[in-house]
């Protein structure tokens, strides 16, 4: 990957953000209609996720994600249809065979590591992935995503410590949206920034504005270069807002102040990114309108198609289990 964000790359990134948003909105509707059992939203995280992936090489690098990473999976090259199917748990679901929650499992084309719902477990596993690369002189970088909540787990500390001791090619990418479900940052840690912890492990800690694709892209590129040069891990803290409640099961008006919720749209990365791209003449306002329409169409088509598909029957239940015959 070159470190130049040219016009076509910027356009592609924005398109992914739009599709992610349209899909995200759709799965919440499908949840309210009783068709999708659960959804966590990436709304607010789109710029951060798309720019991080743009700085990496999906054909070489490893990605350990968590449940709020709709935009990451799309940016890596999975299709909207594949993603939607994970929410509806329909037959042919490509990630886990509809055995797991949305987005969980792995993918046949993209190196998405299987991820657990147990928050934090992905962090030491990512370090192991990077260790295997180092042992075999691979040039790959491992990126592990986690929330501010996950940063409290012992696994997080243990992972960062080991990665730094062994100068492993890991990017610890924390999407700090200020809440672990209802628990605000001030009750999760006595410091202001997770990135400041990096000093305690002897690695660089970088704080970026997660609504700024340029900021996130630059920090991730630098961390990736450093990792590929054999200089070890970096902790990136990308600050974002979670625009919606934790999941479709949550109601954030119980624990967020009214004015806080009303102010969230100011941190919406879509209009922020659109405005930036218009101001540097990458896109016109009418381009954006057309792209929005296209995103809705893609999502409409996928919804219609998948809506009529059957659920997996019982015949595949035992595949890949101890009882497989």
């Amino acid at each position: 990957m070159t470190n130049e964000l040219n016009k076509s790359r910027l356009k592609k990134m924005f398109r992914t953000m739009l599709i992610s948003r349209a899909l995200d909105e759709r799965v919440w509707i499908l949840n309210r209609q009783g068709k999708a059992a659960i959804a966590a939203s990436a709304q607010g995280h789109e710029a951060s996720q798309v720019a991080c992936i743009e700085a990496l090489d999906p054909s070489l690098d490893h990605f350990l994600i968590y449940y709020r990473q709709f935009t990451v999976t799309l940016a890596l090259g999975t299709t909207p249809e594949e993603q939607l199917r994970t929410f509806l748990a329909k037959d042919g679901e490509i990630m886990s065979g509809a055995r797991q929650f949305p987005l969980h499992g792995s993918h046949p084309r993209v190196d998405l590591f299987s991820f657990s719902n147990v928050v934090g477990t992905q962090l030491p596993q990512a370090v192991g992935v990077a260790l295997a690369d180092k042992m075999r002189d691979s040039n790959a970088v491992t990126v592990v995503f986690f929330g501010d909540g996950a940063a409290s787990q012992g696994d997080c500390h243990e992972a960062m410590n080991f990665a730094s001791i062994h100068s492993l090619p890991v990017i610890f990418f924390c999407e700090n949206n200020g809440y672990a479900i209802s628990v605000p940052l001030s009750k999760q840690m006595a410091v202001e920034n997770i990135s400041s912890r990096a000093a305690g492990y002897g690695m660089p800690g970088v704080l970026v504005d997660g609504t700024d694709i340029f900021d996130v892209f630059e920090a991730t590129s630098e961390a990736a270069n450093r990792a590929r040069r054999g200089e070890g891990p970096t902790l990136i803290e990308s600050t974002v807002e979670r625009l919606l409640p934790h999941t479709t099961d949550d109601d954030h008006s119980k624990y967020r102040r009214k004015d806080d919720i009303e102010g969230l749209s100011r941190m919406d990365p879509l209009p922020i990114t659109a405005e930036k791209l218009v101001s540097i003449n990458v896109l016109s306002k009418s381009d954006i309108q057309m792209m929005e329409k296209e995103a809705k169409l893609i999502v409409d088509d996928a919804t219609e198609k998948i809506g009529n598909e059957p659920y997996p029957g019982v015949e595949t239940m035992l595949l890949h289990s101890d009882l497989e015959f």
Binding site: S96, A98, R99, Q100, Y311, M317, L318, S321
Partner: peptide
């Protein structure tokens, strides 16, 4: 239930389990 990790997300398989 069957000796598989509990339990499939998909509805038909969950009730079979």
């Amino acid at each position: 239930p069957l000796e598989i990790p509990p339990m499939p997300f998909s509805p038909i398989q969950e009730s079979e389990y």
